[in-house]
């Protein structure tokens, strides 16, 4: 089995598929980083205008003020403990900025890495994975090389299993590239790592409102580990689905096209999550897993980290089963 997996990985590399993905990643990350850098100065100006001060570099004073205000509120006996959690974590963040002389407006490599995975997890990353996996089987059927491997004395399921496992390893490689490139480019552009910076997490949605009573801070590196781990999980799920489509559909372009349109079209259906109960079981609406830990407000009632994870897992396992079933029975006519 190991040899079979090795074969599949080598095939993907020599097909230059990984090279293409790496290229796309590099270009996009570079653009994203440049864009951030470009808007940075504008953001600073805007902030200055809003607060009515002349020099946005004077963030220390502003932060100092906000910190004092927060600390006073913490002392206020009239705010219940549950309400204080969000105040406390915000104060922690502000204290960190002051102590470490880090401006909260600018960006750091760690922040950038986090932002990039948050932004790409529900569309861009899946698209990359579809590129990777979409022709795993259909490509070989088209090229005729499937005859070569299916006429060896090896059971069919092993061949598909090798493809699946190779895919899992390649998905990890893609995630690795994403992390590496975003770190590298961000360091060049922003210069500061910021891996210890505290990040707030622990949000939840109760009755359509953001409940911050259980928030806490974790260091940036831990947050990044979590985000990228989630990213890998999403990659695995999309990869399994693509593999299944690749097994069922003969043409590679149809295979990739089906996955892409399902992905993009399906995200429209997230509008109906609260009313049309069925839509929440679609895989496309559950892809934005990082929003659960980052608190960015895409959270909707009824969805939670565990729910989305289970739904996605279900889809992945279902897809894998169907792929195996079809592949082992299929007639190769062409």
């Amino acid at each position: 089995m190991v040899k079979l997996i090795e074969n599949e990985i080598i095939k993907t590399f020599y097909k230059k598929r990984i090279h293409v993905i790496a290229g796309i990643l590099l270009v996009l990350i570079a653009l994203f980083a440049y864009g951030e850098h470009y808007t940075l100065t504008r953001t600073q100006d805007r902030v200055a205008e809003q607060l009515g001060i002349e020099n946005a570099e004077d963030w220390k004073n502003i932060i100092g003020q906000q910190l004092l205000d927060l600390e006073r509120r913490l002392d206020n006996p009239y705010i219940p403990d549950e309400g204080k959690a969000s105040i406390r974590v915000r104060a922690e963040q502000l204290r960190f900025y002051l102590d470490n002389d880090v401006s909260p407006i600018g960006s750091t490599a760690a922040r950038f890495m986090g932002q990039f995975i948050e932004q790409s997890i529900f569309l861009f990353l899946p698209l990359l994975i579809i590129l990777l996996a979409g022709d795993m089987v259909s490509g070989e059927v088209n090229a005729g090389t499937v005859k070569l491997i299916l006429t060896r004395p090896v059971k069919r399921w092993r061949i598909l299993m090798a493809k699946l496992l190779a895919l899992s390893m390649l998905e990890m490689f893609v995630i690795f590239m994403m992390a590496l490139f975003s770190y590298g480019i961000a360091m060049v552009v922003f210069g500061y790592s910021g891996f210890n910076e505290p990040v707030i997490t622990g949000f939840r949605v109760v009755e359509s409102q953001l409940d911050t009573s259980a928030v806490k801070t974790i260091p940036q590196w831990q947050y990044l580990m979590m985000s990228y781990a989630i990213g890998y999980f999403v990659a695995f799920v999309i990869g399994s689905l693509s593999l299944m489509v690749s097994v069922i559909v003969r043409s590679t372009s149809a295979s990739i096209g089906i996955m892409m349109s399902t992905l993009i079209g399906g995200s429209f259906l997230s509008f109906f999550i609260s009313d049309w109960k069925l839509t929440r079981y679609l895989f496309t609406v559950n892809l934005n897993l990082t929003s659960y830990i980052s608190g960015s407000f895409q959270i909707v009632e009824g969805l939670s980290m565990s729910f989305s994870t289970l739904v996605l897992l279900g889809w992945a396992l279902g897809a894998i089963s169907i792929a195996f079933l079809v592949f082992t029975q299929k007639d190769i006519l062409a």
Binding site: I10, K15, A143, G144, K147
Partner: peptide
Amino acid sequence: CIIENPELYEYLSGMDNLELLRKMEP
């Protein structure tokens, strides 16, 4: 066997192709 046209992996060398197949039957 050879069924119809002998399609092999075009992006690999002849040697790589054979080696790949050999790995399937150690």
